[in-house]
Write a protein that binds this DNA or RNA. Structure first.
Length: 333
DNA sequence: AAATTTTCCAACCGCCGCCGC
DNA sequence: GGCGGCGGCGGTTGGAAAATT
């Protein structure tokens, strides 16, 4: 159970697992004198351990207010939510889970929650659906690359003096699709909580999100990226705060920042707040999970498989032919 | 039942920031 | 401001326990 043999010693100091006798000595000393001054504590308590080892043993195991046993569903939910905001700040997360230690939470994350998220296709570090981590990084790089010679509005429909209208709309849709996928991350997490953890109550934050009738508009990919920067900044703010109220406030800000609806397209089935949209409408067309989406103009409609294949080809850097303006030629798909 | 593999978690290690001198 | 000691944090280890073959 330990890194070192229980009999191993270093400068006369014992390492390895603690014996009941050692535990008793430490508990007795701290009950009499309190903790702190860990460097001198072992000598005074008659322990052949380093101060650090004593502090760790007390903090992670012997402290009387430690809650042992399985994590509750509510605790698990809290860990996931806090981790999505502040990352591996185990001590800060532990400060919000009474009776739990940072070490315990870290272990529980690594052995249980991480696997659950991975099995659900969610990247445990970014809390995004796993395949999108790659999609986002590649496509965002591609869309913001100099070879895409945007006019004043990068994705504005109607700014197509240099760009074919279909291509402009497809770019708009790509942005739309990716942005909504980002937003739906919370819905997926929500479903995860409901289906895998068994939480039956809906988060007010999520309800607000799905019912928002006038969503903030995302005007450009640059705004989308700066939004990500803002979220990162919120993460850092949270990371420096141990105050649960501050943290709640920051969580709320982050959630609000995610209430983004890009221009150009509307997810048709999004009124059901637990359903990831499978039909995306925009002026004159749609992206559908059906093979033959209904539309007045076939050029303005894409089946979801076709749309996915376009995304995949973007990712594979297979857009080789460009027109004279440096735009990729989507007709090849 | 025995051997092997996987999982779990207590404990260690190294680094960093804070504080007093 | 520089230095050293201390406490705290996050990453990692390795052996016991559990699961699988």
């Amino acid at each position: 159970m330990t890194k070192s043999n229980s009999s191993s010693e270093n400068n006369g100091l014992k390492k390895g697992p603690w014996t009941p006798e050692e535990d008793q000595k430490l508990i007795h000393y701290i009950q009499q004198h309190g903790h702190g001054k860990w460097r001198i504590l072992p000598n005074n308590a008659g322990l052949k351990r380093c101060g650090k080892s004593c502090r760790l043993r007390w903090a992670n195991y012997l402290r009387p207010d430690i809650k042992r046993g399985k994590f509750s569903l509510e605790e698990e939910k809290t860990i996931i939510e806090l981790h999505s905001v502040m990352g591996n700040k185990w001590s800060t997360i532990a400060a919000n889970l009474p009776g739990r230690t940072d070490n315990e939470i870290k272990n529980y994350w690594n052995t249980h929650i991480k696997k659950k998220l991975l099995n659900l296709g969610i990247d445990p570090m970014t809390h995004m659906p796993h395949h999108e981590v790659l999609q986002h990084s590649h496509i965002l790089n591609f869309l913001s690359s100099p070879q895409l010679n945007y006019s004043s509005s990068p994705f504005g429909i109607g700014s197509s003096s240099n760009v074919g209208n279909n291509q402009s709309q497809l770019l708009s849709l790509l942005t739309t699709f990716l942005s909504y996928q980002n937003r739906d991350q919370d819905l997926m997490n929500h479903n995860f909580h409901q289906n895998q953890i068994g939480i039956s109550t809906s988060s007010p934050l999520l309800q607000n999100q799905s019912q928002c009738s006038h969503p903030i508009q995302l005007n450009s990919i640059q705004n989308f990226q700066s939004n990500q920067v803002q979220i990162q900044e919120n993460h850092q703010l949270c990371a420096t705060s141990n105050n649960p109220l501050d943290m709640e406030s920051q969580l709320m800000k982050t959630k609000l920042k995610n209430q983004i609806s890009p221009i150009g397209a509307t997810p048709f089935s999004h009124q059901n707040d637990t359903t990831i949209p499978n039909l995306w409408q925009y002026e004159g067309g749609c992206i559908s999970d059906q093979q033959q989406p209904q539309s007045t103009s076939p050029m303005q409609s894409f089946s979801m498989p076709k749309f996915n294949s376009i995304v995949n080809k973007l990712l594979e850097n297979q857009i080789s032919s460009s027109n004279s303006e440096g735009m990729p030629n989507f007709n090849q798909f």
